[in-house]
Amino acid sequence: MSVRAITPDYKVQARDRVENFHGNQIVYVAWDRHLMFCAPFAYALPPTMTFAELRDQVMPEAFGLHEEFAIINWEKATWLLDNQSFTPDLNQSLQAQGVGHKSVLRFQTPELTGFQGKAV
């Protein structure tokens, strides 16, 4: 469907195009079933950042507030990239492995069930 506008051929540019972020791209990251964090986090990251840098340098500041974060076994954690199963390559850049502008990255740690085992 499209909007019914009074201006003929109404066209506008998307406000959040990647070129508006000064070389960065937006990546959303969430830890499934850990609702201590009310919503996924939004990061502005260089597309050349490696997955290891994202996981080990960017994510701990916010996710580290949860006491289970330090004990995650990353070998066992599973990932979804834009709702598809995904195996990150730690040494590759985000861009090179398909993590694009406004991609959603979610990870699951089934052995860690959150505060009181209640997904918090």
Partner: peptide
């Protein structure tokens, strides 16, 4: 989905902060 031309213009505060 009914009116994408309208909402692609959303002034989302988080993205606006990142756009400087």
């Amino acid at each position: 989905d009914e009116e994408p031309e309208k909402y692609v213009q959303s002034w989302l505060p988080v993205h606006q902060i990142y756009q400087g």
